[in-house]
Design a protein around this nucleic acid. Structure first.
Length: 254
DNA sequence: CTCTTTGATTTTGTTACCTCA
DNA sequence: TATGAGGTAACAAAATCAAAG
């Protein structure tokens, strides 16, 4: 997945349709089709495979008929094609009874459908889950797991992006800080040097900047926008939060 | 053989609903 | 009847495992 600059806000937005709601969103989310979830799904093993395509009409039931080989129904479906090693949903349950956990590999088509669906909504209600599972001929549980993993990995990726962004910000602020320190030292040196005063024209009046409340000589009239927003303010705006006055460096241009 | 990707499992926390004293 | 406690189920996040490429 590509994560562009515009994706970088701390809002964990991954672009159109890919924003991650904050945790409280999930927590606050009603477990909705309550009747469905509680009533009908209660006690149902969602890991059971969907019923054979024929009578697969109902159910959210996620469940359908049982089978020792949960994935068997899907083996021919959406198999994006043949080719090597069952590149379409290669189901592997341990029907061999060897106890080894073999792993399903979703076909390209299945992945694409799941991705599309994830873009629309990164969580599924039970009905959507079952519908999607039926469409892909997977078990609802598999769809659920796919979404869980997708959410987790999307979040991880976004966290990495946020991290590197903040790191860059930190570096740039450090550099700015160094520069300002140098500037201060230069100004102090200038102030101590007697020649400076000889060439200095005393300010007749002082004007106060309304935003930072610093004074400056009116003899050196500031341009209309004499305040530059320094990185902190820029960072704050990027992070979509108003900068604190105290942290917004307001520098009078020379 | 190592590394990455990714499907699956386990653990933990939260919420809603139900039952019962 | 109202209420609080305890039990249960569903769901999601986080951590982890492990197969496959």
């Amino acid at each position: 997945m590509m994560v562009g600059k515009e994706d970088v806000g701390l809002s964990l937005s991954l672009g159109p349709g890919l924003s991650i709601p904050p945790r409280h969103h999930f927590l606050a989310m009603p477990h909705w089709p309550t009747d469905l979830a509680r009533g009908r799904l209660r006690g149902i093993d969602v890991n059971r495979p969907p019923p054979p395509a024929g009578d697969a009409d109902e159910e959210e039931d996620a469940a359908g008929a049982a089978s020792s080989s949960p994935n068997s129904a899907a083996s021919s479906v959406l198999s994006g094609g043949a080719g090597k090693r069952d590149h379409g949903a290669s189901y592997c349950s341990d029907e061999d009874g060897d106890g080894s956990r073999k792993k399903l590999r979703l076909s390209k088509d299945q992945s694409a459908v799941l991705e599309e669906s994830f873009k629309e909504h990164n969580t599924l209600n039970p009905k959507q889950k079952v519908a999607l599972a039926k469409k892909l001929r997977l078990r609802p549980r598999q769809v659920e797991v796919w979404f869980q993993n997708r959410r987790a990995r999307t979040k991880l990726k976004q966290t990495e992006v946020d991290c590197s962004f903040l790191k860059r910000c930190c570096e740039s602020l450090t550099e700015e800080n160094r520069r300002l320190h140098r500037e201060v030292q230069e100004l102090r040196a200038l102030k101590l040097s007697p020649q400076m005063f000889m060439h200095m024209t005393p300010p007749t009046t002082l004007t106060m900047c309304p935003s930072c409340e610093r004074t400056s000589p009116s003899s050196a009239p500031p341009p209309p926008h004499h305040h530059r927003r320094r990185p902190i303010a820029a960072l704050a705006s990027l992070l979509d939060a108003p900068p604190q006055r105290s942290s917004s460096l307001c520098i009078i241009e020379e």
